[in-house]
Design a protein around this nucleic acid. Sequence first.
DNA 1: GTCTATATAAGGATAGAC
DNA 2: GTCTATCCTTATATAGAC
Lengths: 179, 179
Amino acid sequence: MFTEDGYDKTSLREIAEKLGVTKAALYYHFPTKDDIVSSLIEQRIAAVDALLDWAEAQPRDSATRREFLERYAVLHDEFVHENVIRFFERNQTLINTLPAGKRMREQMMRVFALLTDPSDSLTQQLRRALALFSIHASWFLLRERPGTPEERRAAALEVASELLRSADAPAGEDADPAG
Amino acid sequence: MFTEDGYDKTSLREIAEKLGVTKAALYYHFPTKDDIVSSLIEQRIAAVDALLDWAEAQPRDSATRREFLERYAVLHDEFVHENVIRFFERNQTLINTLPAGKRMREQMMRVFALLTDPSDSLTQQLRRALALFSIHASWFLLRERPGTPEERRAAALEVASELLRSADAPAGEDADPAG
DNA sequence: GTCTATATAAGGATAGAC
DNA sequence: GTCTATCCTTATATAGAC
């Protein structure tokens, strides 16, 4: 409901009705509206933290980034991950205002820091960011198309890998801006 | 304010206060909250419609798509375009619920239809969608980096062109998924 | 752990004077 | 065209019985 209609437009009354209980019962389990979101993201936050811990202990090179992205894409196939990402993509302003949103933002910055290097050019950083976005948004970008979730994941990872490889290549080798 | 805090979290009272008038005065100029958004997007809708009219009269080929994207990127440098896009990216659920949002969605689908071909593979469609997203999101993705708006635009267009070219290439030529 | 009932605040939107 | 004052609805959240 938060993803489809928006966090602000989804009232606790509606949630309670859908659950077949009253608002008061809902408040017993979730002291605030934010706590509902928090409970939804716990599993994902923990899984990505673990993946980041692993990656940050590896050599800081292309191979690690590549493998990180592959494992990240596998995670993303799980229901909870895709839904958390879709929720925050559709309610981006919550990343600044909601406590649970701030945790997501900080973790995402950690992911981005892993994928990029301070010496990267703007073009390289953009490619790396788009690689991540390719995985996040493949569901949305390809939803009109026929295809299984597996096919979509494969396409997302293929394009993401291509972008990472392009970002790793020496400048000028991969593109001809004037062409 | 809509972009930073969210459309729903920004009240007409806050807007009126910022303008130094009362809510009632605001309502004189904008009968509904949606009309405020509508007034903001008019200029962009018209400009992109004109660009689409031009492109749809051209041959449906790679050169047209490439030139469309370049002209689209130039448009995007204008304050109003970047801000409209940022507004809808940060308030995506409004694309379904707000009348002004529906107009934006329909136009975006027209843009996407121009860039893609029904015979495209999932990978190709994803590349084309990311090309568009590269231009839309370069501000956001690169905001932490030093660089002028011109440099960001150049980087966005370079990556976008690269993605379009990669999507145009015959399958298997541009990537090695197993590598 | 769930209920009924209610507190309290804020929202979008209007009426009517000036 | 702007104001004061207000309507009506909904929201998050709480109190207290069962």
